[in-house]
Design a protein around this nucleic acid. Structure first.
Length: 636
RNA sequence: GCCGCCGUAGCUCAGGGGUAGAGCACUUCCUUGGUAAGGAAGGGGUCGACAGUUCAAAUCUGUCCGGCGGCUCCA
């Protein structure tokens, strides 16, 4: 057998053919390989127990590198699958990949897995890990592999092999147990040092709702116990910020089963927050040359047929009848805006027309996807349609993106951009799609903004730029979107008169900045953990009295501030100041104004900040000035 | 929509085939207290809804409504 030439750590070494990395490191104990989970051989991932297929440059994947995580998690999934099959004989295995925050494995089992089972499975996994098996790779012909799995009644695996359509497949064996798997895996089971099973959920075989519902067990694994704990803490932190919990605690919004699922009801404090946001947004739109318009919730069904919604979006819409005529509840605001454009003859001098509407839309979402304010059936879009000449398109798109940037900066959100291209179900010919997609790309290129491409993820009427904002816990949220539309102007025969006195067809941009006001409020709540910046805070200050002797003064302070336009509450209860502070702290109010006999005499307030700092008593007017400048600066 | 879990006072939750409990909140009284919860008494629930089983259902079964975690889809 010939030798292979291997580069590692800047050295060139000769290795007999057929050797594995493991063999190799045994022969070269001077080389550091401790805590590597796998390696790259000329860029191709290879594990420790696989014979080197050829020579080349080896780069180790150390356990503490981000690349190691999916490998560790994948191996953990295998261990879990073995544990499940040991504890619940007859369970069939399907697939078990690593995912963003861990891994899962889908099982087909008579037994219904419970949270208690997860603890038992974890225990069994620990026993398996103790054996410290090698994850050994072997190649098997597809025919032989199918025979083996058929014998074990693992029909899902047989199906997988058939669909792979290759002559040979790889197996990974740990002790007695093995699985069809591409790999790579960690060298030995003891490399799995920190894992936890998280939850059980239903999942369709191959994600197809027409196929069998399997049971999916989710788990996570990290290179070290510390990292696992850090992740679990992160989950705890996220739970504390849950907008559904905070929404109740801060009395922002509610749901009611008699009103219906997915229909949020805004409480006074939530509405204060919303009003501030919406009024601010209206001003920002006027500043940027938009006109505010408003259309009805119901429009005739024929109009929805004409727009294409009937053919492409019907299953998400609600319909009703008035007298003999069918009407549809709007799931989008564009139709009225097009009718507004058509309401008179437009000259090229009038373009672009920018129509903005805080429009309440209804969409029939599947019951299983509803989630607090983040996924509802009725929501308000900060929606605008820009109708312009084709040559104005790039400039308008850039304007929208700058608008998005401004808004994201105000709230301190980081964000990234994605362009989505033509989906399967679409209207308009390929040429138009390409033109529109290029307009979006060139706008982002001109602004020097990086973006990813999402093939086939566009709306049915045009490609789009999606803005994914990232909150302070690094979670991504879809909010702003900019969509190009050549189809609807065509369908509605929108026209303008050009400088040549001929009629031309304009193009349309659909765009939202916050997306859904409801969702944005949910995201904001989680981002700030309910401690909103002063300028949007539903309760900006609470006046609290030391004793009943100061009730009149406390009342006066609150009234004065309210008259000055601040959102203020008065806590005049016969309770000790410590208790009032404790309670309002839970409400995350930015300022508490303590007033007692001293303050009443001197016409002052004693402010306490949300962070717990007690400020020197100051006159009410000084305090209001201080507050106003903080509001004006929109400080975070 | 599908799979699993869940629904008890305004909130958070305990209990569980013989007719309901705690803490907080609420009301009243005592207390007049200076920056993270003073004390006492009291009121409040057809145990999500509707059927069924049973001498008896909040508890068991079924259907529906709603919530949570996923699958899938989207703002």
């Amino acid at each position: 057998m010939s030798n292979l030439s291997v580069h590692i750590d800047g050295r060139e070494l000769s290795v007999p053919a057929g050797q594995t990395l493991n063999d190799f490191f045994k022969d070269h104990e001077d080389l550091r390989n401790h805590d590597a989970v796998a390696a790259y051989l000329d860029g191709e991932v290879i594990d420790f127990h696989t014979a080197l297929p050829h020579g080349g440059t080896i780069r180790l994947i150390m356990a503490d590198s981000p690349e190691a995580l999916p490998i560790i998690r994948h191996s953990t999934a295998h261990v879990m699958a073995e544990a499940v099959q040991r504890l619940f004989p007859g369970t069939k295995v399907t697939i078990g990949p690593p995912i963003e925050n861990g891994f899962y494995y889908d099982f087909d089992s008579e037994h219904v897995f419970t949270p208690e089972d997860l603890r038992a499975i974890e225990k069994e996994m620990k026993n398996i890990i103790k054996r410290n098996d090698i994850f050994e790779r072997s190649m098997v012909s597809s025919e032989e592999a199918k025979r083996i799995f058929r014998e074990k009644n693992e029909d899902y695996k047989v199906e997988l092999i058939e669909d792979l359509g290759v002559d040979e497949v790889s197996f990974y064996t740990q002790g007695e147990w093995f699985d069809l798997c591409r790999g790579p895996h960690v060298p030995r089971a003891k490399r799995i040092k920190a894992f936890k099973l998280m939850s059980v959920a239903g999942a369709y075989w191959r994600g197809d709702e027409n196929r069998k519902m399997l049971q999916r067990i989710y788990g996570t694994a990290f290179a070290t116990k510390e990292e696992l704990d850090e992740y679990l803490n992160f989950l705890e932190e996220a739970k504390k910020r849950d907008h559904r919990v905070l929404g109740k605690q801060l009395e922002l919004f509610m749901f009611n089963d008699e009103a219906g699922a997915g229909f949020p009801i805004f409480l006074p404090r939530g509405m204060r927050l919303r009003t501030v946001l919406e009024e601010w947004e209206k001003k920002e739109h006027y500043k940027r040359g938009y006109e505010i318009v408003s259309g009805p919730t119901l429009l005739k069904q024929d109009l929805w047929v004409r727009s294409g919604h009937w053919d492409h979006y019907r299953e998400n819409m609600y319909f009703t009848q008035i007298d003999e005529t069918g009407y549809g509840v709007k799931p989008m605001n564009c139709l009225s805006h097009m009718l507004i454009f058509k309401s008179k003859t437009r000259s090229f001098r009038d373009l672009p027309q920018r129509y903005f509407e805080l429009g309440l839309v209804h969409r029939h979402e599947m019951s299983g996807v509803l989630n607090g304010l983040l996924r509802v059936r009725a929501f308000t879009q900060d929606d605008a349609h820009i109708i312009c000449m084709p040559e104005q398109l790039p400039g308008e798109i850039k304007g929208v993106i700058r608008f998005v940037q401004d808004v994201m900066n105000i709230f301190g959100f980081d964000y990234k951009l994605e362009i989505s291209t033509r989906p399967e179900k679409a209207i308009g010919d390929d040429e138009i799609w390409e033109q529109a997609t290029n307009a979006l790309k060139s706008a982002l290129d001109d602004l020097d903004l990086p973006y990813e491409i999402n093939e086939g993820d566009g709306a049915f009427y045009g490609p789009k730029i999606d803005v994914k904002l990232m909150d302070c816990l690094k979670r991504e949220w879809q909010c702003a979107t900019v969509q190009c539309d050549f189809a609807l102007p065509e369908r509605f025969e929108l026209e303008y008169v050009g400088s040549d006195n001929a009629t031309h067809r304009p193009v349309m941009i659909h765009r939202v900045i916050l997306g859904s006001v409801e969702r944005f409020l949910g995201v904001l709540t989680e981002h700030f953990a309910g401690a909103f910046p002063l300028w949007i805070s539903p309760v900006q200050a609470v006046v609290m009295t030391i004793s009943e002797k100061s009730v009149d003064y406390g009342h006066k302070v609150a009234e004065t501030m309210q008259a000055a336009g601040f959102r203020v509450e008065a806590d005049l209860r016969d309770e000790k100041i410590g208790k009032k502070i404790a309670e309002w702290r839970e409400q995350k109010v930015p300022y508490m104004l303590v007033v007692g006999e001293k303050e009443a005499q001197e016409n002052r307030v004693a402010p306490r900040t949300r962070s717990g700092e007690t400020l020197e008593p100051m006159s009410l007017s000084d305090f209001m000035q201080r507050m106003q400048s903080e509001v004006d600066s929109k400080a975070l």
